[in-house]
Amino acid sequence: MSATTVTAALRRSQLYRRHIDLGGHFEQVAESTLVSHYRSIEEERAQVKTLALVDLSALPRIGFKGLGAPDWAAAQGMTLPAQPNRATLQDDGTLIARLSQTELLIASNLSGASTHSAVAVSAVADTTLAERVYSLPRADSHSWLVLCGDLAAETLAKVCGVDLRPHKFANGEVAQTSIAKINGVLIRNDYGDTLAYSIFSDSSSVEFLWDSLLDAMAEFNGAPVGVQALRDC
Protein backbone atom coordinates (compact mmCIF):
# COMPACT_ATOMS: atom_id res chain seq x y z
CA MET A 1 0.00 0.00 0.00
CA SER A 2 1.51 3.34 -0.99
CA ALA A 3 1.40 6.20 1.52
CA THR A 4 -1.21 8.92 1.04
CA THR A 5 0.43 12.32 0.67
CA VAL A 6 -1.11 15.40 2.22
CA THR A 7 -1.76 16.85 -1.24
CA ALA A 8 -3.57 13.72 -2.49
CA ALA A 9 -6.99 15.36 -2.09
CA LEU A 10 -8.48 18.81 -2.68
CA ARG A 11 -8.73 19.77 0.98
CA ARG A 12 -6.13 19.56 3.73
CA SER A 13 -5.83 20.93 7.24
CA GLN A 14 -4.49 24.43 7.84
CA LEU A 15 -2.01 22.64 10.13
CA TYR A 16 -0.57 20.31 7.49
CA ARG A 17 2.97 21.72 7.86
CA ARG A 18 2.89 20.83 11.56
CA HIS A 19 1.69 17.31 10.71
CA ILE A 20 4.46 16.77 8.17
CA ASP A 21 7.05 17.97 10.72
CA LEU A 22 5.61 15.53 13.28
CA GLY A 23 5.91 12.63 10.82
CA GLY A 24 2.15 12.17 10.36
CA HIS A 25 0.73 9.39 8.18
CA PHE A 26 -2.17 10.71 6.14
CA GLU A 27 -5.39 9.08 5.00
CA GLN A 28 -7.96 10.29 2.51
CA VAL A 29 -11.54 10.91 3.65
CA ALA A 30 -13.88 12.07 0.89
CA GLU A 31 -12.24 15.20 -0.56
CA SER A 32 -9.80 15.67 2.33
CA THR A 33 -6.58 14.32 3.73
CA LEU A 34 -6.16 14.07 7.47
CA VAL A 35 -3.68 12.50 9.83
CA SER A 36 -4.44 8.85 10.47
CA HIS A 37 -1.62 8.45 13.00
CA TYR A 38 1.85 9.73 13.88
CA ARG A 39 3.13 6.78 15.92
CA SER A 40 1.91 3.20 16.28
CA ILE A 41 -1.85 2.78 16.73
CA GLU A 42 -1.31 1.02 20.07
CA GLU A 43 0.72 3.95 21.42
CA GLU A 44 -1.87 6.44 20.23
CA ARG A 45 -4.80 4.47 21.68
CA ALA A 46 -3.08 4.68 25.07
CA GLN A 47 -2.28 8.37 24.53
CA VAL A 48 -5.95 9.23 23.85
CA LYS A 49 -6.87 7.89 27.30
CA THR A 50 -4.47 10.23 29.11
CA LEU A 51 -4.05 13.41 27.04
CA ALA A 52 -4.06 13.90 23.28
CA LEU A 53 -4.69 16.57 20.66
CA VAL A 54 -6.34 15.65 17.35
CA ASP A 55 -6.76 17.86 14.30
CA LEU A 56 -10.09 17.22 12.56
CA SER A 57 -10.00 20.42 10.48
CA ALA A 58 -10.24 18.49 7.21
CA LEU A 59 -13.64 16.98 8.10
CA PRO A 60 -16.87 18.64 6.85
CA ARG A 61 -18.75 21.15 8.97
CA ILE A 62 -21.17 23.99 8.31
CA GLY A 63 -23.38 26.44 10.16
CA PHE A 64 -26.79 28.05 9.75
CA LYS A 65 -28.23 31.17 11.23
CA GLY A 66 -31.54 33.01 11.09
CA LEU A 67 -35.04 32.92 12.54
CA GLY A 68 -35.99 30.09 10.17
CA ALA A 69 -32.87 27.96 10.80
CA PRO A 70 -34.15 25.73 13.65
CA ASP A 71 -37.38 24.79 11.84
CA TRP A 72 -35.51 24.21 8.60
CA ALA A 73 -32.98 21.94 10.30
CA ALA A 74 -35.71 19.99 12.08
CA ALA A 75 -37.43 19.50 8.72
CA GLN A 76 -34.18 17.94 7.43
CA GLY A 77 -34.45 15.32 10.17
CA MET A 78 -31.91 16.86 12.52
CA THR A 79 -32.46 16.62 16.27
CA LEU A 80 -31.70 19.99 17.83
CA PRO A 81 -30.90 20.79 21.45
CA ALA A 82 -33.79 22.66 23.06
CA GLN A 83 -31.68 25.48 24.46
CA PRO A 84 -28.64 27.50 23.32
CA ASN A 85 -25.08 26.44 24.19
CA ARG A 86 -25.93 22.75 24.06
CA ALA A 87 -24.95 20.12 21.50
CA THR A 88 -26.68 16.90 20.48
CA LEU A 89 -25.09 13.88 18.88
CA GLN A 90 -27.19 12.54 15.98
CA ASP A 91 -27.71 8.83 15.32
CA ASP A 92 -24.94 8.80 12.69
CA GLY A 93 -22.39 10.54 14.94
CA THR A 94 -22.94 14.05 13.53
CA LEU A 95 -22.55 16.74 16.17
CA ILE A 96 -25.12 19.56 16.11
CA ALA A 97 -24.54 22.51 18.44
CA ARG A 98 -27.03 25.27 19.06
CA LEU A 99 -24.91 28.39 19.55
CA SER A 100 -27.86 30.72 20.09
CA GLN A 101 -31.61 30.28 19.74
CA THR A 102 -31.21 30.79 15.98
CA GLU A 103 -27.68 29.60 15.15
CA LEU A 104 -26.51 26.05 14.50
CA LEU A 105 -23.14 24.40 13.96
CA ILE A 106 -23.12 21.00 12.25
CA ALA A 107 -19.94 18.91 12.37
CA SER A 108 -19.37 15.59 10.62
CA ASN A 109 -18.70 12.26 12.29
CA LEU A 110 -15.16 10.82 12.25
CA SER A 111 -15.64 8.90 9.02
CA GLY A 112 -16.47 12.10 7.14
CA ALA A 113 -19.58 10.32 5.83
CA SER A 114 -22.11 12.14 7.95
CA THR A 115 -25.57 12.20 6.39
CA HIS A 116 -26.66 15.31 8.23
CA SER A 117 -23.63 17.40 7.33
CA ALA A 118 -23.80 16.15 3.72
CA VAL A 119 -27.46 17.14 3.51
CA ALA A 120 -26.68 20.53 5.02
CA VAL A 121 -23.71 21.19 2.73
CA SER A 122 -25.62 20.16 -0.39
CA ALA A 123 -28.62 22.26 0.67
CA VAL A 124 -26.42 25.32 0.44
CA ALA A 125 -24.90 24.36 -2.88
CA ASP A 126 -27.94 23.03 -4.74
CA THR A 127 -31.08 24.76 -3.62
CA THR A 128 -32.38 28.06 -2.42
CA LEU A 129 -32.49 27.90 1.34
CA ALA A 130 -35.75 28.49 3.15
CA GLU A 131 -36.66 32.04 4.07
CA ARG A 132 -34.71 33.46 6.99
CA VAL A 133 -32.07 30.72 6.84
CA TYR A 134 -28.54 31.86 6.13
CA SER A 135 -25.56 29.54 5.70
CA LEU A 136 -22.26 29.99 7.53
CA PRO A 137 -19.49 28.11 5.71
CA ARG A 138 -17.45 26.98 8.72
CA ALA A 139 -15.12 24.52 6.97
CA ASP A 140 -12.77 27.23 5.72
CA SER A 141 -13.25 29.84 8.43
CA HIS A 142 -12.90 27.55 11.44
CA SER A 143 -10.40 24.90 12.39
CA TRP A 144 -11.49 21.89 14.45
CA LEU A 145 -9.28 20.46 17.18
CA VAL A 146 -10.17 17.78 19.73
CA LEU A 147 -8.46 17.76 23.11
CA CYS A 148 -9.16 14.46 24.83
CA GLY A 149 -8.18 12.22 27.71
CA ASP A 150 -8.42 12.22 31.50
CA LEU A 151 -6.19 15.29 31.83
CA ALA A 152 -7.94 17.42 29.17
CA ALA A 153 -9.80 19.54 31.73
CA GLU A 154 -6.61 20.24 33.71
CA THR A 155 -4.92 21.32 30.48
CA LEU A 156 -7.77 23.64 29.51
CA ALA A 157 -7.76 25.19 32.99
CA LYS A 158 -4.35 26.66 32.07
CA VAL A 159 -5.63 28.48 28.98
CA CYS A 160 -9.35 29.08 29.52
CA GLY A 161 -11.34 31.01 32.14
CA VAL A 162 -14.46 28.80 32.05
CA ASP A 163 -14.72 25.92 34.54
CA LEU A 164 -14.62 22.91 32.19
CA ARG A 165 -14.08 20.18 34.77
CA PRO A 166 -16.23 17.15 33.89
CA HIS A 167 -18.43 17.40 36.98
CA LYS A 168 -19.18 21.08 36.23
CA PHE A 169 -19.35 20.98 32.43
CA ALA A 170 -21.49 18.06 31.27
CA ASN A 171 -21.20 16.14 28.04
CA GLY A 172 -23.01 18.14 25.35
CA GLU A 173 -22.42 21.53 26.95
CA VAL A 174 -21.03 24.35 24.81
CA ALA A 175 -18.83 27.30 25.87
CA GLN A 176 -18.16 30.14 23.46
CA THR A 177 -15.11 31.66 25.03
CA SER A 178 -11.45 32.55 24.81
CA ILE A 179 -9.01 29.62 24.68
CA ALA A 180 -5.35 30.61 24.88
CA LYS A 181 -6.52 34.13 23.90
CA ILE A 182 -8.17 32.75 20.77
CA ASN A 183 -11.94 33.08 20.51
CA GLY A 184 -13.60 29.78 19.87
CA VAL A 185 -16.54 27.47 20.33
CA LEU A 186 -15.73 24.68 22.76
CA ILE A 187 -18.03 21.65 22.89
CA ARG A 188 -17.69 18.77 25.31
CA ASN A 189 -18.28 15.75 23.11
CA ASP A 190 -16.95 12.57 24.70
CA TYR A 191 -15.90 9.68 22.46
CA GLY A 192 -17.11 6.54 24.19
CA ASP A 193 -16.00 6.98 27.80
CA THR A 194 -13.09 9.23 26.81
CA LEU A 195 -13.46 12.83 27.94
CA ALA A 196 -13.13 15.08 24.86
CA TYR A 197 -13.54 18.75 23.99
CA SER A 198 -13.99 19.86 20.39
CA ILE A 199 -12.62 23.35 19.76
CA PHE A 200 -13.74 25.35 16.73
CA SER A 201 -11.73 28.53 16.24
CA ASP A 202 -10.52 30.94 13.58
CA SER A 203 -8.44 28.93 11.13
CA SER A 204 -6.01 31.78 10.49
CA SER A 205 -4.68 31.54 14.05
CA VAL A 206 -4.90 27.77 14.51
CA GLU A 207 -1.13 27.25 14.32
CA PHE A 208 -0.83 29.46 17.41
CA LEU A 209 -3.64 27.58 19.18
CA TRP A 210 -2.12 24.18 18.25
CA ASP A 211 1.30 25.23 19.60
CA SER A 212 -0.24 26.76 22.73
CA LEU A 213 -2.27 23.64 23.53
CA LEU A 214 0.73 21.35 22.97
CA ASP A 215 2.75 23.62 25.25
CA ALA A 216 0.03 23.45 27.92
CA MET A 217 -0.13 19.65 27.51
CA ALA A 218 3.61 19.13 27.87
CA GLU A 219 3.66 18.96 31.68
CA PHE A 220 1.03 16.18 31.53
CA ASN A 221 2.94 14.27 28.81
CA GLY A 222 0.24 15.00 26.24
CA ALA A 223 0.90 14.47 22.54
CA PRO A 224 -0.85 14.81 19.17
CA VAL A 225 -2.53 11.70 17.78
CA GLY A 226 -4.29 10.88 14.51
CA VAL A 227 -7.98 10.36 13.89
CA GLN A 228 -7.71 6.56 13.99
CA ALA A 229 -7.07 6.42 17.74
CA LEU A 230 -10.17 8.59 18.30
CA ARG A 231 -12.29 6.27 16.14
CA ASP A 232 -11.17 3.33 18.28
CA CYS A 233 -12.44 4.94 21.50
Partner: peptide, 17 residues
Protein backbone atom coordinates in the same frame (compact mmCIF):
# COMPACT_ATOMS: atom_id res chain seq x y z
CA UNK B 1 -10.55 40.23 36.75
CA UNK B 2 -13.93 41.90 36.34
CA UNK B 3 -16.82 39.71 35.28
CA UNK B 4 -19.72 40.65 33.02
CA UNK B 5 -22.78 38.44 32.60
CA UNK B 6 -23.61 37.77 28.97
CA UNK B 7 -27.34 36.97 28.55
CA UNK B 8 -26.42 34.11 26.20
CA UNK B 9 -23.17 32.76 27.66
CA UNK B 10 -23.32 33.62 31.35
CA UNK B 11 -20.61 35.28 33.48
CA UNK B 12 -17.31 35.76 31.62
CA UNK B 13 -14.07 37.69 32.03
CA UNK B 14 -14.44 41.29 30.92
CA UNK B 15 -11.63 40.71 28.40
CA UNK B 16 -14.09 38.66 26.32
CA UNK B 17 -16.31 41.71 25.77
Amino acid sequence: MKLLTCPLNGPRNISEF
